[in-house]
Design a protein around this nucleic acid. Structure first.
Lengths: 217, 217
DNA sequence: TAGATTGTTAATCGATTAACAATC
DNA sequence: TAGATTGTTAATCGATTAACAATC
């Protein structure tokens, strides 16, 4: 009835774009030039019609009879997501989890650079993770403000998670990826991803106990 | 039209159950006894009507005019998911990522026990992660078979991920949680979760660049 | 009893998919 | 031209939500 939110994109579409991107980048590495929606569908377990429809929300990037040129599609999706330029992120927590995130090879490959890692443990401050010095937590707010960093990763024990989240929010962080075992709350306007790995295991457990076949995710 | 898959449960429902469970366990810890769907809705950012509807797929667990008794609901959801008993899992990869997963406090709390950690690096084999000895990768298959372990976590560098996945599948692992930066393929019947943290960052990036308000996830 | 909240129906909404004309 | 595959419409499907009677 209204014509206003004509170009609102369904959340599901946005969730699938990064998946397409992963596969496309892999294909590009493998030396492919074009890919059809049918092939993309195989690789992602997503219906080819859906892939085509998802993409048309943003334009028409393919050639009929041919398929999609991979480098073009990569560029387009990156532009849509805003990953066509580098994003600086901070990590709070220099334990195993923080170290794992910091050295995660997928970060750099997709345009994320770790600007700093913070901890409040005197034993960790000053040590190195890869080539990066662990900084004192009290420097976090200033650095986020000064360098206008918008993305923060929480990699601390559950007791400390909410405190860290609060500090991040007041410093101006706009996206938080929370890896701690505890759920945190953030003010309106801050985007929060509670990525609790166990939650996924539990989800899968349901299907395991029923011995059903399920699409891989 | 058909009456056969009358009690098929939508995937979305199963995905939300672990979230309800997390919140309920937290509430129980805080000393609460009952909770209404309205309150659960606030805590999870899910519509109360949806919560009630989700639960009725499995029975009616609440009291009208009162709400849900937390301990009962926790039990019920755990029974539905199959997390009412302990599950043994293995981890392959004893680096930072594997160590982080192994020492993740949320595992034990929700019924998962790390049965073993494997690596193929001689420098790591024999060392300890927490109280657990890192075992040689070549022992993995036998142990999985003998102890009938069904859940495996991949925490190795991307180059090794597919090899590890193959080994797990042939050993009889039925659920794989892949934390490596590379996508793996598994045979039909094995449930795979590619949990690529960067993919979530990319997804969120879209909303960041648009400065839209989005429900937290 | 009055107030609250569930369980459940029915309506809405939106996403997925099949199908096919357009076109490379 | 013939074959392939996109872009797009229209149909289907399923999930979300509002509303309310049941009942604690």
């Amino acid at each position: 009835m209204t014509s206003i939110d004509k170009d609102r994109i369904p959340e599901g579409v946005i969730e699938r774009l990064p998946l397409y991107l992963s596969v496309l980048i892999q294909l590009r590495q493998d030396g492919c030039y074009t890919v059809s929606s049918a092939r993309l569908g195989e690789l992602t377990d997503i219906n080819p019609a859906q892939i085509r429809r998802d993409l048309t929300h943003f334009g028409s990037f393919g050639k009929r009879g041919v398929g999609y040129e991979i480098v073009i599609l990569v560029d387009k999706i990156q532009a849509i997501l805003g990953s066509d330029h580098t994003h600086r992120i901070i990590i709070v927590g220099a334990g195993n989890l923080g170290s794992a995130v910091a050295s995660y090879s997928g970060l750099r490959a997709r345009g994320f650079v770790v600007a700093a890692i913070f901890d409040n443990d005197p034993e960790k401050i000053g040590t190195r993770i890869g080539e990066m010095l662990v900084k004192d937590m009290f420097q976090m707010e200033r650095m986020v403000r000064e360098q206008e960093i918008t993305i923060g990763v929480i990699a601390v024990p559950p007791e400390a998670a909410q405190l860290v989240a609060d500090a991040m929010c007041s410093a101006g962080i706009r996206v938080i990826l929370n890896y701690s075992a505890s759920m945190v709350r953030v003010p309106e306007g801050v985007m929060l991803h509670n990525t609790d790995p166990v939650r996924e295991l539990l989800h899968t457990l349901y299907y395991l106990s029923r011995t059903q076949n399920v699409a891989t995710v």
